[in-house]
Design a protein around this nucleic acid. Structure first.
Lengths: 344, 344
DNA sequence: AAGCAGGCTGTTAGCGCTATCATTAGCTGG
DNA sequence: CCAGCTAATGATAGCGCTAACAGCCTGCTT
C-alpha cells in the first residue's frame, strides 16, 4: 500500500499521496497534520507515519487560500546593518514565538519608494499583520495600509499620525531631553554631528529638531554642524569629529546622531588627549550595548528597542488588553545615561 | 476596531472587482497586472486606472497556487545580531534585486531543532530556492532539503558534505592559516578565547581545529583556553582576556573566535599598558569593518561575506554559467590581515 | 426498542487566481 | 472572396488545500 520512495519521482507530494499511503481520506490527513478536530489515535499514528516516511511537507499556499488565514507577520525595516533593528526583531520573535505567527522581514533601505514596493509585495501575501518602522510613508503606502484590513503597527517613532497602531518613543522629546541635560551640565558651545537628514533617517532629524528647540529655549543655538552620508562607523565618527574640531576648536560639546559615530568621535578625542568630559563633552543616541567596553562610556539615550519589538508584536497578535483590532498608540520613555562623557 | 478612514469597504477586493469596474474579463485584468500576453493599450489603461482607484492589491497566494510559481527565496541564518549575516543579506538582496525574486529571512538561533522547524515552514511556502548557513543540519532537515526539488545553497562553510550547492570558505583552512602566520611571527605561547563550542557555532569550532592542527605541526599546542556563552561584545572580550591572563600571565598570543571579543581583549591589553604586538599579539576573525577606528587594528581574516551572499543568490537565481539547477560548490579564499596586533 | 449524543470519517464546494484553449474580429494575399 | 493568419479577448478547468456539513457507528439513556 505504501509506495517505495522512488528516487526518480520528482512529482511534488500532495495530501492525496499521504492519504493513499495511509488509507484514509485527504480530509483526515489534513486534520491530523493540523491537529484539528477529532481523529482516533490509531489513525493519527498511521497518518503521521505515512507523512514522515514520504517526506511530505504541506503546501501552505493552498492551505492559506482555502482557509483565508496566513500565519505571517510582515516586518519592514530600513536596514539590517543598523544594529537597532536586529534588537527590535528579537523582541518581535520572542513574542510571536508562541502565537503560531511567523515574522517575515523586508528591507526598505531608507527609501520611501522601495518601502512602498515592499509593502505592496507583503500585502499581496495577505499577512496577519504588518509592523513597520517610522510613521512617514508615501501617500500610496498609507492608502494601502489603511485598506489592508489587518493590524498595522508603526514602530520606533510616535511623533506623527499613525495609520493604525504605533509603539515608539518621541524622538523630538528625546532630543530636547538630551539638550537639557547638556545645558544643565554647563556646556554652552554645542555642535551636532550626524546623518545627512533630508534624504535619510527622519527620526534623527526629529531628535535634532527637539534638540535645537531646547537650545533655543535656553538662548543657545548650535555652534557648528557636520553631516555625512553612508553607513555609520567608528572611522566615520573619527573623521567627522576631526573635521569639525579643526573648523571650530572652541566647541565644548559634541552631539552625535548615533552611538557608533559618537564612539568614533570619543576615541578620536581620547587619542588627542582632550579632557573628556571636562573640556569637552559628547553624547550619542541608542544605548548600544555592543559598545560597552570602550575606554569610556558614551553618554546616550536608550531607544527601548526590545520593548518596542515586544509590544508591537503583542498588538499584532491581539494579545493586548483591548483584544485583537484595538487601535493603540504607545509612547515609551527612553532613559538617559550620562555615561562618562558628560560632566556631573 | 480600527476603522479605515474610508467608508466601510471591508470586503477584500478580488480580480473580479477590478474586472467589473473596468468592463473586461478577469483574465484580461490578470494579463494587464502581470504584463503578460497581448492587451490593447486602451484596455490596459482602463484596467490600470480601475485597479489603482480601487486600491487593488493582487492575492499572490491564489496566484502562486494557480501558476505553481513563487518568487520567494528563503534565507535561513543563525542570528541577526551577529553582524556577519546582515552583510551576507546585502549581497543576496543586491543580486536578487533584478531577478523578480524576493528574499525571506528566517532565524534559527544556532539551534538545529529550530532550524529544522524554519526549513519546514519555509518549504511549506514552496519557495524558488533556499539559502542557509552552514553545512551541518539535522537528519530530517537534510532529507527535506534533498526532497525539496529547488536549488539549495549552503553558505559560509565548505568543510562538509553539502546537500546541493555551497558557497563559503574553509574554516579549517582559515584557522590553519592564521596559526601559521602567528607562528611565523615568532609567538609560541598561544591561547584561545571563544564561543563555547559543543552547542554553539560549528564554524568557530572548525577554525579552532584547523588552528590546533597547524600548531601541532609546529610542535606546539594551546597553552590555555577560555570559553564563553551568550552574545559577543567588547565587554565579554575584556572579561575573558583578563581572566585568562590572570591565570596564564606568560601567554604571548591571544587567538579569538571573533573580532568583537578580540577587540574587547585588545582594549583591555591597551588599558593595562601591555606591549601589543611586541610582548603579546592578538587576532580575531571576520574582518568587521565596523571596528575599524579602534586605537589599533586587530589582526583578522575576512570571511568574504558579501561575495558569499552574491554568489549564493546567483546560484538560486540560475544566473551561473551552468544555468539553473547546476550543482556547484564554490570555495572562496579569505584574506589575512595582520593589522597592528601581530608583529611583522 | 427507539432515540440520541458524541466520536470519527468522508463528501462537497469553493478560496482567487492562472494555463490553456477557444473564439472573434480584422487583415493579408492569391 | 475565402483560406490562413495574427491580435485581442473570453470561457473553462483546475492548483492543493480546508470549511462546512453529512454520514455512520458505538454506547447509553429512557
Amino acid at each position: 500500500m505504501s509506495k517505495a520512495p522512488q528516487p526518480e519521482t520528482r512529482r511534488a507530494l500532495t495530501l492525496r499521496d499521504v492519504s493513499e499511503a495511509s488509507g484514509v481520506s485527504e480530509m483526515t490527513v489534513s486534520r491530523v497534520l493540523r491537529s484539528r478536530g477529532d481523529v482516533s489515535e490509531a489513525t493519527r499514528q498511521r497518518v503521521l507515519e505515512a507523512a514522515r516516511s514520504l517526506g511530505y511537507v504541506p503546501n501552505k499556499i493552498a492551505g492559506a487560500l482555502a482557509s483565508q488565514r496566513v500565519n505571517l507577520v510582515g516586518v519592514i525595516i530600513p536596514s539590517l546593518s543598523n544594529m537597532v533593528f536586529p534588537e527590535v526583531m528579537t523582541g518581535i520573535s520572542e513574542v510571536l514565538e508562541d502565537t503560531g505567527l511567523q515574522p517575515v522581514v523586508g528591507v526598505s533601505n531608507y527609501h520611501h519608494d522601495r518601502e512602498e514596493q515592499v509593502i505592496y509585495e507583503m500585502l499581496s501575501w495577505r499577512p496577519s499583520g504588518l509592523i513597520l518602522a517610522g510613521v512617514e510613508h508615501s501617500e500610496a503606502s498609507r492608502a494601502m495600509l489603511a485598506q489592508a484590513g489587518v493590524p498595522i503597527v508603526e514602530i520606533m517613532d510616535v511623533d506623527g499620525d499613525p495609520v493604525d497602531s504605533a509603539v515608539g518613543i518621541s524622538h523630538r522629546r528625546a532630543g530636547r531631553q538630551m539638550a537639557e541635560a547638556i545645558i544643565a551640565a554647563g556646556y554652552r558651545r554645542i555642535a551636532f554631528l550626524g546623518t545627512h537628514m533630508p534624504t535619510q533617517d527622519t527620526r534623527a532629524r526629529k531628535r535634532l529638531e527637539g534638540f535645537e528647540e531646547a537650545l533655543a529655549k535656553a538662548g543657545l543655538s548650535l555652534v557648528d554642524r557636520e553631516y555625512y552620508t553612508g553607513g555609520s562607523s567608528l572611522l566615520q565618527g573619527r573623521a567627522m569629529t576631526e573635521a569639525l574640531l579643526k573648523r571650530s576648536p572652541d566647541v565644548d560639546f559634541l552631539y552625535y546622531s548615533n552611538d557608533m559615530i559618537g564612539a568614533g568621535g570619543l576615541l578620536w578625542c581620547l587619542d588627542q588627549g582632550l579632557d573628556v568630559p571636562g573640556k569637552i563633552g559628547l553624547a550619542g543616541f541608542n544605548g548600544m550595548e555592543l559598545l560597552d567596553g570602550l575606554p569610556r562610556k558614551l553618554a546616550t539615550m536608550d531607544a527601548c528597542r526590545l520593548e518596542i519589538g515586544q509590544q508591537s508584536a503583542e498588538i499584532v497578535a491581539g494579545k493586548r488588553p483591548g483584544g485583537a483590532g484595538a487601535r493603540e498608540v504607545i509612547e515609551l520613555t527612553p532613559t538617559l545615561d550620562l555615561g562618562d562623557t558628560i560632566r556631573k
